[in-house]
Amino acid sequence: MNLFRFLGDLSHLLAIILLLLKIWKSRSCAGISGKSQVLFAVVFTARYLDLFTNYISLYNTCMKVVYIACSFTTVWLIYSKFKATYDGNHDTFRVEFLVVPTAILAFLVNHDFTPLEILWTFSIYLESVAILPQLFMVSKTGEAETITSHYLFALGVYRTLYLFNWIWRYHFEGFFDLIAIVAGLVQTVLYCDFFYLYITKVLKGKKLSLPA
């Protein structure tokens, strides 16, 4: 494992925990897209089914279990514990426009036509677009709380670091996984506009608000 990959995993973990803490401490999930969080829970579930079939390393197993546990806890906080604070009126992205095409694509373009492999592929495609309901919500309300911006930034950094990891692995190991790379590129591009706003506004101490 190279440094990019490790830092990528850490920033992914940081993003997930940051969101959980934000909701827990403020007792509110205002401004958070429950739909994006459900999609991430689906992503982790579909991808980490190999927990039951394959042992890779203690690190690998622990991270997968933590990711799954955290994402389900987040969904539970949004839709059950702090349901009253959930901003459902602004969370109106149609998730079927993401789930159906990515599911079809996973059947058509995959490494191997087996159930687990198709589910893994589906999770990779779905992850690349799962943040769209959240970004849509931010654009609809025109702003995001600073901590929500940090969450989105850490999440964007994660896939960007994975891109460097893939360049590294291709260069030094001759390894590449085209499905992960293309989906990872799409995912990173979706964050670019947000990165720009984050650097020009949030880092200068301003709240992220979009021009009307």
């Binding site: 079939t53 394959n54 390393s57 690998n60 087996t114 159930p115 492999e117």
Partner: peptide, 10 residues
Amino acid sequence: AFEMMEKDEL
């Protein structure tokens, strides 16, 4: 046919 190619990335 339930196996999956080994994947170490998360």
